[in-house]
Design a protein around this nucleic acid. Structure first.
Lengths: 154, 154
DNA sequence: CCTGAAACAAGTAGGTG
DNA sequence: CACCTACTTGTTTCAGG
């Protein structure tokens, strides 16, 4: 993982349809060497997958909310994870420190559907309460920055 | 946007390197028709871009936290957005309802770096306080589900 | 890491219900 | 209008150095 790899990752994050020839031009290498590096990044798991970024509004889910789940038992187990995965509105689930146990990211069609999802979250065994943070507007969402932390060199 | 489009989106979310021939086989259409549909999904903005999913740990940012920013003035303006964008640790920023004004997703190398980012967030004009939710473990992160809400047909 | 060639996919054109 | 088959252009991928 050198600077060339990081440059490659940045280019591919921005547009993964770029040809190896174009990528090669961007980093000053031959197309074959570029190909080799990308293959290695895939094989080592740095690149987890090539995917598409879909507009949630176009999919009928313009409403976004973060829900903090409180629990009276441990809900960081596999069963809870399985139940959360079964809910198509849940995009992320994290075990968190603090008074809540779990943080989930939820996308729904509207507030009515959000309410229905909250009800389903309550139905998960161990869940004793929810605190919902409704997103009014998303300022930006972007991929993890591959470049070294700028302040490291201060 | 019919079921065929949604099936296409689901396939591409899972693996955007699939050839049109393979995609075509998955949805029972010719390669050219598949190509046409994908082009339309791109042109209409349903597919925002093709990108790679990079492991944040491999990029040296294994620590994840959500930070709620309180403000004593309005911080939903362009200047605040620009300042947040300038911080490479900030992956998402949302204007939220409730006592906080802004919710930001932050990835850092460790807790020390997280602390440094919090300090920078405080430096944004109008920010009067932060509440940090540290993620101990990510259960899952996945793309927006393209399929119709299962409970719609209940 | 490079050059170069073979296998393959993307993208285009023209035609059908 | 969405789909098909057939073709051209360009890209991926793999030798060998």
């Amino acid at each position: 993982m050198d600077d060339t790899d990081r440059a490659l990752l940045a280019l591919l994050q921005h547009d993964a349809t770029l040809s190896y020839t174009t990528l090669a031009g961007g980093i000053g290498l031959s197309s074959a060497a570029t190909h080799d590096r990308v293959r290695k990044l895939r094989d080592t798991g740095v690149i987890r997958r090539t995917t598409i970024d879909v507009d949630p509004t176009a999919l009928g889910r313009p409403t976004l909310a973060y829900v903090l789940l409180s629990a009276d038992t441990w809900i960081g187990d596999d069963d809870t994870a399985t139940r959360l995965r079964a809910l198509p509105w849940v995009e992320e689930a994290h075990i968190v420190a603090g008074s809540a146990s779990l943080l989930v990211k939820v996308r729904t069609a509207d507030n009515t559907e959000l309410q229905a999802v909250l009800r389903r979250l309550y139905d998960i065994p161990g869940v004793s309460g929810t605190q919902t943070i409704v997103v009014l507007d998303t300022v930006f969402e972007r991929p993890t920055n591959p470049h070294g932390n700028p302040t490291t060199h201060d």
